[in-house]
Design a binder for these strands. Structure first.
Lengths: 197, 197
DNA sequence: TGGAATATTGACCAAACGGTCAGGATCAAG
DNA sequence: CTTGATCCTGACCGTTTGGTCAATATTCCA
């Protein structure tokens, strides 16, 4: 792939992230993507054949990065530390990559038409592996016993909430407060109390 | 308002709920709404002047019902029972009204363009009133001290997660399990541990 | 029952949208 | 510098969409 290709594909994906994360797949237009990327509409379609193709490429590109924190849970580590680190990592992703969070939120809200194979396949395996680790820790009495998959849901929902529902969070908290800083303290406390044996 | 008006406005709002909750404001079409309502497109526009008007009417109609559970927290009740009842009520709304949940999720994801006045106004007041009650309970030592607004966020995010991300939840849990039944147990445990003084 | 008010629709319009294409501009290698 | 490959664009096309309107059907009530 040439230098120009590299650069423009990247610009397009950046623009698409901006557009799709705020308006969703159907709501975003190729024109918006092109404008956000600083390219003309036909030029965007020169690199990606269709809007769906852009969307698919974007999801595929970002999925690994999105699931990475969970795979960094160390089965040999101290259970509480590992879980709290994971929570912290997910929370920081809501701060640093809120658009990515909203992109996936849109997709799943609509029934994940472009992610079904991943949701039923890779994601479930990754979760299953983590569940095994969590259950072992619980068996060993090093972590309080809770339903592990719902524990994971709780982490996902609460951390991503700060990105996906940012508008609401800011409206409720008012100006001058840092939602994620406060959230980090709250979540640390919450999971300590929930998971300390 | 005549009987026919009553019936058709209701049919339209029902159809709109179906369409908007799955595709969002821009993604849903008046045709979809009309089809879901069993009416013709011009007839839909006879009752509501535009797609935006339908959307606005729908949000306005549903907002009170959506916020009702929080206002039923009894300041004179037993703190832990009141909070756990609220959690349970919100969770049951995810089971009984998942489309309403997704409708609001779509709206807030896009920055709540049609809800800004409500988010900054009424919602904040309702939350503030609840926060006062929660803080009093904490001052009295009847509830463990946590940041009350983030406590509310956690309830919202975890309960609504079962509706908004249902596809993902089902993909991870697999068939034959009742996500919300299990979630009820998990959340009861979680908030007991978090809030017991 | 007659006629005014209300309800409904097919046909239509303009704008927005996804996508195509022929041809011109630019670049990289010999 | 030449030339072929890559890159880019204005103009265009068919479809979808939000919305209008004149004409028709239905309802309601004096």
């Amino acid at each position: 792939m040439s230098r120009i290709q590299q650069k423009n594909r990247d610009l397009i994906l950046q623009g698409a992230l901006q557009a799709f994360s705020t308006h969703g797949l159907r709501g975003a237009t190729i024109d918006q993507i092109a404008r956000a990327a600083g390219l003309s509409k036909p030029n965007v379609l020169y690199y990606f054949g269709s809007k769906d193709e852009i969307h698919k490429a974007l999801l595929t590109t970002l999925l690994d990065m999105w699931l990475a924190p969970m795979q960094q849970i160390d089965p040999k580590g101290e259970p509480l530390v590992e879980v709290l680190s994971y929570v912290r990592a997910k929370l920081l992703m809501s701060r640093d990559y809120p658009r990515e969070s909203r992109l996936f939120a849109h997709e799943i809200l609509q029934g994940a038409p472009h992610l079904t194979e991943i949701l039923g396949g890779g994601l479930r395996e990754i979760v299953d592996r983590t569940v095994v680790v969590l259950e072992r820790w619980m068996d060993e009495g090093r972590l309080a016993r809770v339903e592990p998959r719902h524990l994971i849901f709780s982490i996902w929902s609460m951390t991503q909430h700060y990105a996906d529902f940012e508008t609401q969070v800011r409206a409720v908290l008012g100006a001058g407060r840092d939602p994620i800083d406060e959230g980090a303290v709250f979540l640390d406390d919450l999971y300590r109390k929930l998971l300390t044996p």
